[in-house]
Design a protein around this nucleic acid. Structure first.
Lengths: 212, 212
DNA sequence: CTTAAGTTTGGTAGTGACTACCATATGGCG
DNA sequence: CGCCATATGGTAGTCACTACCAAACTTAAG
């Protein structure tokens, strides 16, 4: 029962790799799915069975990296949220760093093409949701409030990842992503970031109660 | 020199309104641009001169709200970053609250359609960049570091807006967005959010162990 | 008023992503 | 070898979007 799945995975990889190659050579907009299918020696129908849209051909790698880290977090219900979120960041960056050229190419393609950029942003948003859903389960107190807190925390976490990666891909080879992430987390911890400040004395009561 | 621009703005509004109406009635995917053009009594070519893609028909209102707030921030170089970012949040929410049905419909359409969701996320990302670019100018020190800090701050700010709005649109009428935003900012200020924590003693900075 | 220049408009033809569908081929198993 | 499930390739069609052109309209000048 394994030969079929092996073959499936093989053709899947083949299509994705050929597509990526063509995108890098001629650009995303100037490459048609017919050309990709021809390069992978499959029919266009087959291609669409593996990848629902042209954009997923570009984003598969990033998608996998994020999926891996978030599913890890989901399977670790005992770890402290702060440590878990840090590890999520580290795991994502570690995997991305294992294939710098690919990551750079992805962000390059996203920068030049609005649709790719849009789908990349939506991908990040989806994992922010997944991360929030996994996080909310280990937050005590009012579920509605916990959901809000989890969404904010997950958003900030993904925000760190995103900005670290963007700086990392724009820098030739000088910095490593992990230390950038460490720097970002330190900025968060020490309050060195100019965050939007709540205006005290505005008459709005603070009904957020958190037990320590 | 004014009659032309008046007419332009009129037809622009007409197209956008008719489109939105059709989207709400029959869904985004089930509405063709030809139908929209026919409803607005213009040719398809004319429609495309005003709106580059179908998605922009949906997102115009949100785009305007964000553009207004960010351009306000850009034109206030003297205000403190913390206060400025808070005001950005307040201004965006204020404008969105002025048209709750429209906002609710936009997020509803985004939830049901991947492409709309993707373009919404990209729109938010673009304004996060704009906000960061406006913010970096008033941050002292190393420009590279300031850029990083600004990107993180802008990201967190947009993150607050996004999550507040998502909670707000999902809640019938009980909460108001401003107090939710206030709550979020208080959470940020008091450190009540479980943020990813930099691991001390990992060899990057120092060796002091930090338990729990 | 009239003419000229610039702008807005509608229409046509085409490209290409994506879908629905069907006939065929291929692998897994008795 | 036959039986079933799945994988594949091809066809026809829809629809977003583009490039282009000719007609209508707006504005300004003679």
């Amino acid at each position: 029962m394994g030969l079929r799945e092996v073959k499936r995975e093989r053709t899947r990889r083949l299509i994705a790799d050929k597509a990526f190659e063509l995108f890098c050579d001629h650009g995303f907009g100037r490459t048609t799915v017919e050309q990709i299918a021809a390069a992978a020696e499959v029919g266009p129908s087959t291609l669409y069975r593996y990848f629902p849209t042209k954009e997923t051909l570009v984003l598969e790698f990033v998608d996998d990296c994020l999926a891996d880290a978030v599913s890890w977090f989901r399977d670790q219900p005992t770890v402290e949220p702060r440590d878990g979120l840090r590890t999520v960041i580290e795991r994502v960056l570690e995997q991305l760093e294992s294939n710098p050229d690919r990551v750079r190419a992805v962000f390059d393609l996203a920068e030049r093409n609005g649709s790719v950029s849009a789908h990349l942003n939506e991908l990040i948003w989806r994992f922010r949701n997944d991360l929030a859903a996994a996080l909310v389960r280990r937050l005590p107190g009012d579920p509605l409030h916990a959901e809000f807190v989890a969404a904010l925390s997950a958003g900030i976490t993904m925000n760190v990842i995103e900005n670290v990666v963007r700086v990392w891909v724009d820098t030739p080879h000088a910095v490593n992503a992990q230390s950038l992430a460490h720097q970002a987390m330190t900025l968060l911890e020490t309050g060195a970031l100019p965050l939007p400040a709540a205006q005290h004395g505005s008459g709005i009561s603070d009904n957020s109660r958190h037990d320590s």
